[in-house]
Design a protein around this nucleic acid. Sequence first.
DNA 1: GTGGTCTAGACCACT
DNA 2: GTGGTCTAGACCACC
Lengths: 122, 122, 122, 122
Amino acid sequence: MAWKLDSSQPIYLQLQTELELRIVTGVYPPGSQMPAVRVLAQEAAVNPNTMQRALQELEQSGLLHAQRTAGRFITENLTLIEQSRQHLAAEQATIFFERMQKLGYSRDDALRFAATLQEEPI
Amino acid sequence: MAWKLDSSQPIYLQLQTELELRIVTGVYPPGSQMPAVRVLAQEAAVNPNTMQRALQELEQSGLLHAQRTAGRFITENLTLIEQSRQHLAAEQATIFFERMQKLGYSRDDALRFAATLQEEPI
Amino acid sequence: MAWKLDSSQPIYLQLQTELELRIVTGVYPPGSQMPAVRVLAQEAAVNPNTMQRALQELEQSGLLHAQRTAGRFITENLTLIEQSRQHLAAEQATIFFERMQKLGYSRDDALRFAATLQEEPI
Amino acid sequence: MAWKLDSSQPIYLQLQTELELRIVTGVYPPGSQMPAVRVLAQEAAVNPNTMQRALQELEQSGLLHAQRTAGRFITENLTLIEQSRQHLAAEQATIFFERMQKLGYSRDDALRFAATLQEEPI
DNA sequence: GTGGTCTAGACCACT
DNA sequence: GTGGTCTAGACCACC
């Protein structure tokens, strides 16, 4: 699985977003066990500590819970997962609005512009 | 001025987008002279050849035109600049739609979601 | 059974408190025989001499009495055990008051505060 | 200043509690600048990363805020500090109740017992 | 094997 | 100088 990381943001935040995305999209289904920290870290080619930090932050949001020796598990709370999905979506929308504002589009203008786009506009 | 470059894309494409953005937003106003290649290259901390390539691509699009000895100038054709602005905007909108699709939002859903966002949603 | 020891206090005092707690709470019932020193020492992962010292101190308080060859026995004097229970409780209350005083609570304030706590306050 | 650490709990949690205590009791007054991470770490004889972790957790609670290059500052929000004081007090009270319960005292019994204690009961 | 903690030491951006 | 991030590698408790 692809772990694309860049230097525009701290790695642990990017890992956090990617993990959240995978949970929200069902790559890691509700109630299932997460791969071990060390496995994920190797996949993403980062230090286990960095991956651990990303996982811990997700744990605070309740999306994950760790069982000392048994591993980490995804929450079965679908409401929480749906909230997370909306959180990620809000993030994307905000980025979009920010960048459009740089180009001189108000939020309304940006929405109107996007609404008139053809399927493959570039 | 900031030149943030990453390795996710060829450098010259990132330079091109940044230059386009500056022209479109009036940092480099219509009809004015562009800074010299060497200056721009130093600012962005890239090889002058790479900057040269980005500028040449912009010449092809008509946004810039070179005058043998006097340097490069931004076009005075405002229609062209407006087209470029819409091109950049379309790029952003496409990125937005792609990411929202990953999250399970259709184009309509994405627009509806964005429209309901408050000012400081994150 | 858990023997959690730290370095904040002499080991034998910690052993003494733990043994007292077990007698008071009936883990070692009145009149019954104590496990052998060596067994206790191994459980707690301490030197038998250290455990021996803790037991001797308890003998002085009357909670235990040794019978030449047969081993050590817990007292059947329930009044003595009850006194010991109150002694341990007083210790805890004192610690509580000390820490609350550090936080700016007088003894009365501390009691009033504790009385208003809900079941799962943290 | 004393930094007493034991192994009964993760160090960063103990540091967190100690820092909270110092803020709440005015050792570090509202609005003032905290000593630098490296200074605190040396004082407590721990790794700067461990101290940093403790500080970051306090930052999440709002008790501190970091200014990238200028240092960390204690909040001026007295309400927040008072909340923190009550939080620490609730922690102590809970520990007290737990230990008294081990000794066979209900919450009411524990309070009644503590209320009858003389000044120097041990 | 698992997650959790800690240390040592490095580099970065910012001022 | 400051805080922030990252890595490498160690040890622990638990089962």
